[in-house]
């Protein structure tokens, strides 16, 4: 269970107005995320990316699944939907198709999107559904206390792999690319600006955009793998390399050698909605324009 942040002074604390205040449900702060958690920086880079994109905030929606990252929908001051475990993507799909004017962002964790929700992810990517999917990948299930996920590195320790993970993790960008995502990027929480720019780019394009964000879970993952919070961050700095347009096959996040970051895929392919409209609803003026 995520620890509740200690109640802090909720007055301005010396700051008059945070630039993201308009996008936060400040009446729901303090949030549940632990100190040192990577969800916060991912969330704020996402909000900055949304702002920078210039999309109409009144028609921008955040949909989350279940887990620590899934709580993001509860803090964002947009129309926001906190759905069932693994099902944020099909929920978001229905929403986008019902009202193509909406900009729909799915913000959730690796367990939610790739284990229980894996099937939905690959099919939304295959369809090139008009969604922006942001995955906080902290290599384990944080909310339930640190169990192995589909992203846990081989031999890493979790509460359900006490002697090390016998399985191999997904290479998420490769999976997204193979399934048909037309925009694929990976950053760490240390690469806030790059991350923000990828979100910004994703918000203003059509089709399925996927951004993986490597983020620390010091409380559950770091602790069991003898990784102090600063060590994780240092790894993000020294053990990564930015290689835009790298082949997704080279992107395994837990092999030997540095972790490759960057914008790997950005291609134009007709999105589900434009294909559907062309084929089935020629009577409608091009709908779903961002």
């Amino acid at each position: 269970m995520a620890q509740t942040a200690k109640k802090q002074d909720q007055t301005t604390g010396g700051f008059e107005h945070h630039p993201l205040d308009d996008l936060l449900r400040t009446d729901r702060i303090p949030h549940i995320w632990c100190p040192g958690c990577g969800i916060g920086p991912t969330f704020s880079a996402t909000l900055r990316g949304i702002l920078a994109s210039g999309v109409d905030l009144g028609s921008t929606v955040m949909v989350s699944g279940i887990g620590c990252s899934g709580r993001a929908a509860g803090y964002v001051k947009l129309d926001s939907y906190h759905t069932t475990h693994g099902r944020a993507i099909p929920f978001a799909t229905g929403m986008k198709l019902a009202n193509p004017k909406l900009n729909v962002v799915v913000f959730s964790g690796d367990g939610d999107l790739f284990a229980i929700g894996g099937n939905h992810f690959i099919h939304a990517a295959r369809r090139n559904m008009d969604l922006t999917v942001i995955c906080v990948n902290n290599l384990n299930y944080g909310m339930t206390g640190g169990q192995a996920a589909a992203t846990t590195p081989h031999m890493a320790k979790t509460t359900t792999t006490p002697k090390g993970n016998p399985e191999r993790p997904f290479n998420l960008p490769l999976l997204a690319f193979a399934a048909g995502a037309t925009f694929v990027a990976r950053w760490t929480v240390l690469h806030g600006r790059d991350l923000m720019e990828s979100v910004q780019a994703a918000m203003t394009r059509r089709g399925f955009s996927f951004i993986e964000v490597l983020a620390p879970c010091p409380i559950n993952y770091g602790r069991r793998n003898k990784e102090l919070p600063l060590v994780t961050l240092r790894n993000y700095q020294v053990n990564t390399i930015i290689k835009n347009e790298a082949s997704p096959a080279e992107l395994a996040a837990s092999g030997s050698g540095p972790i490759v970051l960057g914008r790997f895929v950005d291609e134009n392919r007709e999105s589900f909605l434009s294909q559907y409209d062309k084929t089935y609803r020629p009577q409608l003026a091009p709908a779903g324009k961002e």
């Binding site: 929920f91 978001a92 799909t93 019902a98 009202n99 909406l102």
Partner: peptide
């Protein structure tokens, strides 16, 4: 899940 999302979008 998709029909709940669609209905929340007003349809």
């Amino acid at each position: 899940a998709s029909i709940i999302g669609a209905s929340c979008a007003g349809v």
